[in-house]
Write a protein that binds this DNA or RNA. Sequence first.
DNA 1: CGTCGTGTTGAACCTAGTCAATTTCCGTGG
DNA 2: CCACGGAAATTGACTAGGTTCAACACGACG
Lengths: 242, 242
Amino acid sequence: MAEEVNPLIRALEQYDVLSDEERDALRALPLRTRLLQKNEEIIREGDRPTHSCLLVAGFAARTQNLEDGKRQITNLHAPGDFVDLHSLLLKRMDHNVIAFSDCEVAFIPHGALRELIDRHNHLSRLLWVTTLVDAAIDRAWITCLGRRPAIDHLAHFICELFTRLKGRGLNDGNSILFGATQVELGDILGMSTVHVNRTIQDLRKLGLIDWEAGRVTIRDFDRLADRAGFDPAYLNQWVEPR
Amino acid sequence: MAEEVNPLIRALEQYDVLSDEERDALRALPLRTRLLQKNEEIIREGDRPTHSCLLVAGFAARTQNLEDGKRQITNLHAPGDFVDLHSLLLKRMDHNVIAFSDCEVAFIPHGALRELIDRHNHLSRLLWVTTLVDAAIDRAWITCLGRRPAIDHLAHFICELFTRLKGRGLNDGNSILFGATQVELGDILGMSTVHVNRTIQDLRKLGLIDWEAGRVTIRDFDRLADRAGFDPAYLNQWVEPR
DNA sequence: CGTCGTGTTGAACCTAGTCAATTTCCGTGG
DNA sequence: CCACGGAAATTGACTAGGTTCAACACGACG
């Protein structure tokens, strides 16, 4: 089988097999892709978007801003993730989505997507699945934030990120490219920048990871996963009739 | 209009208007209800359920257990919430659902639900919406856990709980019945029991709430919401074509 | 009347946050 | 090739928010 290039098809094929007809239907969707620079807003809280969007390249983040200027990232997205299927049904965005790195995003008009899901039940379910997986990730983040110490939390995040990227062939052996600053990492983990710095150093000293210049190398995945209590099942990285 | 008694219909009517035909389809679903005692497991991590379930009365909680015996509650559910639509598409549960109080749960076979969503696009979307609202709540929890001090977090939780219950007429003026122990509250908020105790006292001293014997009374919602940075929009408590 | 679960309190401890300074890295222009 | 400036990483000292441990009070229940 030739490597599929349509990002939508690749996104959904992660979770189940698609028929030729379904592929055709997906290919027929009017995608318009756009390049965005790091930190550009993709969608703003309060918006009522007319398009949904799929991340084709780079990273995107969901963010919520607090009154006092603090920021929390509630999920991070890798190529192949839908970063906004919510607005198709919820209509009003309750959070922001920003370009976490320079990235490429494909926009799909809600109208076309609505027609697609009304006509293709199976595709509709698979789109639903993508939002359910996002929710599973959110739950894992809640547990890390609520009950794990900083070092385990960071370890868990690295395991998750690595596993998600690897699931799409975006790893490079046991390292990944992830150009987040420590400030941004703090917004992901709910920690201060200083503490992020010290926690990374702790993982380094334990010989579990290297992290330099936007390249994260996992030196001992098993030990890292063990310390983090990481079980990849929640990522649902398998094909199954749905 | 007569008060609707079918819990499924009430659940979906929160988000959009239903046609008579849709109501009939929902009424035709084979519900089997069951009474559960507090702390009984409704679904266990790793299960591959054959039924989805809807909470009819009482509270239910999603929980994740850590290696060291710690526990985190990742979402709380009130009557009218689906507590397991996930397994319909994700197949394998990545977390537990337990009876948070004595409660009544309606089970619906996956087969019947699948037929329903294949036949009724609009109902399918509304079911999807319920999972999206859950995800929105998860995001709010992440932000509270990551970036808010304990007192604001607790205030936010109370605002959320009150608003969700009020949306279903389950409030009693400005108080609600919520029989959680402080240990359980700790599992919700990601705090130690002792700190929960002290934080509740802080809110009491500020004149914002009373909390005694399972009854939470909000003495000044505006001030409470203000301190918590609570904006109810994410709960999507309105009817809108979806 | 004893026991257990829950709420409450105090004190010691520790993880993580804050503030401020310093160093490293990197891109730019000369 | 080097000097400069700004962003990011790192470090130290101090503080604060939150945890832990232990004790005690209270009420429900057998």
